[in-house]
Every structure is written in structure tokens, then in C-alpha cells.
Computed example of a mutant assay.
Amino acid sequence: MSPAFRTTTIAVHTGRRETVKDLTGDCEAFLSSIGAREGLLNVFVPHATAGIAVIETGAGSDEDLLDALADLLPRTDRWRHQHGSTGHGRDHVLPALVAPHATLPVVAGRIALGTWQSVLLVDTNRDNPDRTVRLSFLG
């Protein structure tokens, strides 16, 4: 493995309800711990029912995202994928709308996010309360 490539995983407890978890601090801590300066940070959730989003949080946008997903992907028994709780099939469609990854520029050791942007784990799967997220830096 190249010394310019570093990777780690973090465990994220999301609980038994739909949630949006801010990972920005975890990402920044990882970059700091490896002395990252310039490059790319990839954030990847290796689960079939979760995604990574880069949006504003704290002003209601995170709840708006969950509401929009509920409108687009209702938690009903209409889904062909039918195991787990009612409507779990929608959770398997989520990554088509909220990708399971994001690649972000790192400049001067920090993620080059916009003023109000945060890196978020989006998890609508109430059947799986624990997630793993892989952070990989290429510099």
C-alpha cells in the first residue's frame, strides 16, 4: 500500500429509527491523525441500506431529507424485497438516491466543504442499528 493511501473504519450506532448522523468531525479527526495535507477523502458505507450525503444540518435540512425520502420511498408493503420490518424493501432502494459514498477534496488538511455543508450518514433501516463507515485518504 502506498504511503499516500490511508484507510480506517469507524463504527456508527444509528439506533432503531431513521436517522442522519453527522460524520464531519470523524472525517476531520481521521485526516488530522494521519497528517493529511492535500488529496481526496472517500467516505464509504458498505451496507446495502445506507448512504452518504453532503448537505446542511442543524437548520432542519437533515429532517427535510428524511421526510423527502419517506415521500419518495414510502414505508409500506408495496416493495418486492420483503424481509425484515414492513417497508424494509425501500431501504434497499435508498442507495440509488443517496449514494453509499462521497469523494471530497482535502486542502491544507481540511475537507474543502462549503460554509454550511456536512458529511452525513443517512440510514433509514430500522432493523440494523450499527453501521461501519470506511474513510480512505489518497494524497
Rank of each mutant, 00 (worst) to 15 (best):
V106G: 02
R126Y: 02
L113T: 01
R6V: 10
Q82V: 07
E38Y: 13
T103A: 09
E28G: 08
T24K: 04
L65C: 00
L135S: 06
F30R: 05
T57E: 13
D64P: 03
G39M: 07
G89E: 06
D64I: 06
S33M: 08
V43L: 13
L66P: 00
A59S: 15
T9Q: 15
T7P: 12
D26K: 06
P3D: 14
V12P: 08
L135P: 08
F44K: 10
D71R: 14
A29C: 00
H88P: 05
L104I: 00
G25M: 04
H47V: 08
T8S: 15
V93G: 04
C27W: 01
V45H: 13
G51A: 12
L23T: 02
M1E: 15
K21R: 12
N125K: 02
A99T: 12
L104D: 11
T49F: 13
A36W: 14
V45N: 14
E63W: 09
L113F: 06
S118M: 04
F30T: 11
S136C: 13
A53N: 09
E18C: 05
L73K: 10
A96P: 07
D67P: 03
L104Q: 02
A11E: 14
T24A: 00
H13M: 09
A50M: 15
A48R: 08
V93K: 05
I52K: 11
E28P: 06
V98D: 01
S118L: 07
H88R: 00
D127C: 00
I111F: 07
T9P: 10
L135T: 11
L138Y: 12
V20L: 02
D64H: 02
T8Q: 12
D67H: 12
G60M: 02
R17C: 10
T103M: 03
A68Q: 09
S33A: 12
V43A: 12
V54C: 11
R78A: 09
N128E: 00
S61W: 01
W79L: 05
R134T: 12
S61Y: 06
T76C: 05
G35N: 06
T132F: 08
T124N: 03
A96D: 09
A108Y: 07
A4E: 15
D130M: 02
G51K: 12
T124W: 01
G89T: 09
L94S: 10
A108E: 14
P74E: 07
A70F: 04
G109Q: 04
P105H: 04
R16N: 14
V106F: 05
L97W: 11
H81L: 07
G39F: 15
L23I: 00
N128A: 00
A53G: 12
T124D: 03
G58I: 04
A70L: 03
V54R: 13
L73N: 11
T132L: 08
H81M: 08
F137N: 08
S118G: 09
R131G: 03
T124V: 06
I52G: 07
T49L: 11
P46V: 09
G39V: 13
T103S: 13
E18A: 08
A96S: 11
C27Y: 01
V122S: 00
S85V: 01
D123C: 03
R75C: 07
T14K: 03
T9E: 15
E63M: 13
V43P: 14
